[in-house]
Design a protein around this nucleic acid. Structure first.
Lengths: 227, 227
DNA sequence: AACGGGCCTAACCCCGGGTTAAGCCCGGCC
DNA sequence: GGCCGGGCTTAACCCGGGGTTAGGCCCGTT
């Protein structure tokens, strides 16, 4: 069964859905507004999020983008507005599925199953190789050109978070949520400092990167040095 | 772009959808009945199947089960019947998404994108190729004839927005909304400036375009240079 | 000829990101 | 208990890429 985070402002709907899903053996967290929902997402890292548009505190599509800035979790968007444009916008903003109100718990559950079936396709925890760099998640060790690296806890977590999706730019918010388990407040320099130390240990600088590439305004990317 | 198999018995709908999808650069196979569709699936192994229920030769849900017995391909079910029961049944029979008739090609395409994004292991979006141009959305890199392009954040976003629908003229307002995430305020030259910079980096000018074609009064189009 | 949409150059300046240094917390050790 | 040191955070400062704005040219349309 799944761990579901439900973000829905209508009390009646939220309570009844939560109860119905719980009765069927799912673990359910529920929030009535967007920002508390985001907080809950980081605290609990659920398997799937059910997100109502038309929340009181924040626009649903904006919230969806925030969710995507902090996590890769599958999101099912529930909305009363079911116009063409809305569907396209939410899907492009990173939604995984879309369901028009009103809907039954059965239908929602079927969609949850369908989304999770897809998400569970990939599962691995082997050592990761990127160029001359090797990261072993289980043993929490990393080495560069067969030379062991002496990394602190956060340094390793940071490297691992990047190494899980090599070649992909990871937004700073996602990194922060994954490594520090709290929302990213923007002006937070901690990440930069650790990044800087990590670079030093990898024998590179921001000006002359080999593995750690920052993409201004977007995030960080781990990729093999060229040449 | 995707390789789509379209199984739909209504001649008008099938032909027009096939044409619209093909125009946007997708490879399209089309069948009017279930069993030939299944055969085609085995022969051609498309990236995604769009399946109409209410086929003449066989019940749609049965067909879906047969598809699932032979393939993991993502299936989008299109149907006029949009009752709860149908949705739950088709999702549980293995459908990945569900769209109610009538629907636009645009919405279908968005759903195709969403389903493929999900299907690709790790949720990573596939690279887009247009002529000699390659765009990697996840890594945020682009290259022209295997030569890496050094693009700024907005330049890349702009190129990506165009590359997501190659061959299609995108209205300036839509581009602006997607890249700048705010409504298009008429006399805004910012878009033009970035377009200009992008052209320079692609080695072309507005007078002699190769990839970026402006259609006066309508919008911008990305397409491969001819000859 | 006048208009307006599109394009380009140049200048300005903001803010994201990097780094260093200082302080704090905490666990280990004598 | 007091000292020590590794590790993490906070603060302060710097840098420069790049986004915006402004001004003017081009050219097709009316």
């Amino acid at each position: 069964m799944a761990h579901v985070l439900l973000i829905e402002d209508d009390d009646r709907i939220r309570r009844s859905l939560a109860r119905l899903l719980a009765e069927r053996g799912h673990e359910v967290d529920a929030e009535a507004a967007g920002l508390p929902g985001l907080q809950r997402l980081i605290d609990r890292s659920p398997d799937v999020v059910v997100l109502d548009l038309g929340l009181p505190d924040i626009d649903g599509v904006d919230l969806l983008r925030m969710v995507r800035a902090t996590s890769q979790v599958p999101v099912i968007v529930a909305t009363a507005r079911d116009g063409e444009r809305d569907i396209v916008t939410t899907l492009d903003a990173g939604a995984d599925d879309h369901v028009a109100k009103p809907f039954s718990a059965e239908q929602l559950e079927a969609r949850i199953r369908a989304v999770l079936r897809r998400a569970n396709a990939g599962g691995r925890e082997a050592a990761i190789h990127v160029g001359d760099l090797t990261i072993d998640p289980a043993g929490r060790t990393a080495s560069l050109a067969d030379e062991a690296l002496d990394l602190s806890r956060l340094e390793f977590d940071l490297l691992l978070a990047l190494a899980r999706r090599p070649g992909e730019v990871i937004p700073r918010g996602q990194l922060f949520a994954e490594v520090w388990r709290q929302p990213y407040g923007g002006g937070d320099k901690t990440l930069d400092v650790h990044l800087s130390w990590l670079r030093r240990k990898l024998g590179e600088t921001a000006a002359h990167p080999r593995y750690l590439h920052t993409v201004r305004g977007v995030g960080i990317k781990l990729s093999a040095p060229d040449g």
